[in-house]
C-alpha cells in the first residue's frame, strides 16, 4: 500500500501564546514547535498498515516554512520512508489553499490511502482532510477513532454526539485520525539516526492567498472574578438564589 500522511508543524500544546507586535499573529520567540499531535496518530496508523501488509511506502507531506523539515524528520524517525516539504513562509487562516497545495502534490502519486490528523491544534480548522478528499474525488471519513482495513476498503468509526458512527469506505480514501486510533510510537535513537539519511524533497508550495483576512489576534477576554457564596453545604441556598435571580440560569 502506498500511503501519504499530511503533517503540520504547530506550537506545542503547552506553549504560552503571546500575540506578536503586529497584533495579527503569535509571537514565535521562544515557542517550541512540534508535530501536530493528531498527525502522530495518522503517522502511527500508516506505519502499522505498512507493517501489517509487509510492504508499502509511507510518504510525509507538509506545507510549511523551512523549519518544518524538522517536523517531517520527526515522522521519518518514527519510521516513514520519505518526505516532501511544500515550502510556504506564511500559511494563512483559510484552510482551502493548503488543501489545494496538498491535493496538487498527492494527485498523481498513486496513493491508496491519504491520512491526516482530524485537526491542527493551532488553528483547529478540522477542515483540510475533508477538503483534500473533495479536491481529489476520494472517499473520506474524518475523525476516525477506529479503523479496520479489508479487501479494497475498510470500516471506520467516528465519535458523534451521543454515539459512534460506523462508516464503510472504498480505496483510495482519505482518513483523518482522532485520539484513540492508536498509541503513537516514540522515535528510537536508531530511527532518529536513520531519518537523517532519508530523502526529503523541498519545493515551493505556490499557495493561493485564500479568502480570509486577519483583522486581529487578541488574548481571550478575561473572565471577571466572581465570588465565593459561602462555605460547606449551608451555602447551597445562597448559591441557588444567585443562580436563579442574579445569573438567571436555573
Amino acid at each position: 500500500m502506498k500511503i501519504a500522511v499530511c503533517v503540520k508543524r504547530v506550537p506545542d500544546s503547552e506553549a504560552r501564546i503571546k500575540v506578536g507586535a503586529d497584533g495579527k499573529a503569535i509571537d514565535e520567540a521562544g515557542v517550541k514547535f512540534v508535530l501536530n499531535p493528531y498527525d502522530e496518530y495518522a503517522v502511527e496508523e500508516a506505519l502499522k498498515l505498512k507493517e501489517a501488509g509487509g510492504s508499502g511506502e509511507v510518504v510525509i507531506v507538509c506545507v510549511g516554512p523551512e523549519a518544518a523539515q524538522e517536523t517531517i524528520r520527526t515522522a521519518l524517525a518514527m519510521g516513514a520512508d520519505t518526505g516532501v516539504l511544500l515550502k510556504a513562509d506564511k500559511v494563512g487562516l483559510d484552510p482551502l489553499p493548503v488543501a489545494k497545495a496538498l491535493a496538487g502534490e498527492l494527485k498523481d502519486g498513486g496513493y491508496d490511502l491519504v491520512l491526516l490528523g482530524k485537526m491542527a491544534i493551532d488553528d483547529s480548522s478540522h477542515a483540510v482532510g475533508p477538503m483534500v478528499a473533495e479536491l481529489l474525488g476520494m472517499q473520506c471519513v474524518s475523525a476516525a477513532a477506529h479503523l479496520e482495513m479489508g479487501e479494497g476498503g475498510g470500516k471506520a468509526e467516528r465519535e458523534i454526539e451521543g454515539g459512534v458512527e460506523v462508516v464503510e469506505f472504498g480505496l483510495p480514501a482519505v482518513i483523518t485520525a482522532d485520539k484513540g486510533l492508536n498509541e503513537p510510537r516514540y522515535p528510537a535513537l536508531r530511527g532518529i539516526m536513520m531519518a537523517k539519511k532519508k530523502p526529503l524533497e523541498v519545493k515551493d508550495a505556490a499557495l493561493e492567498s485564500g479568502g480570509i483576512e486577519v483583522v486581529n489576534l487578541a488574548p481571550p477576554a478575561e473572565r471577571k472574578a466572581g465570588r465565593i457564596v459561602g462555605e460547606g453545604a449551608d451555602a447551597v441556598p445562597a448559591l441557588i438564589e444567585a443562580l436563579r435571580n442574579e445569573a438567571k440560569v436555573l
Binding site: 503569535i26 487562516l93 491544534i121 486577519v214 486581529n216 487578541a218
Partner: peptide, 13 residues
C-alpha cells in the same frame, strides 16, 4: 484558536 488561548477576528473577502 490555540485551544482557547487567543481569539482571531477574521474578515471574509
Amino acid at each position: 484558536v490555540y485551544a482557547g488561548k487567543a481569539d482571531y477576528t477574521l474578515k471574509v473577502t
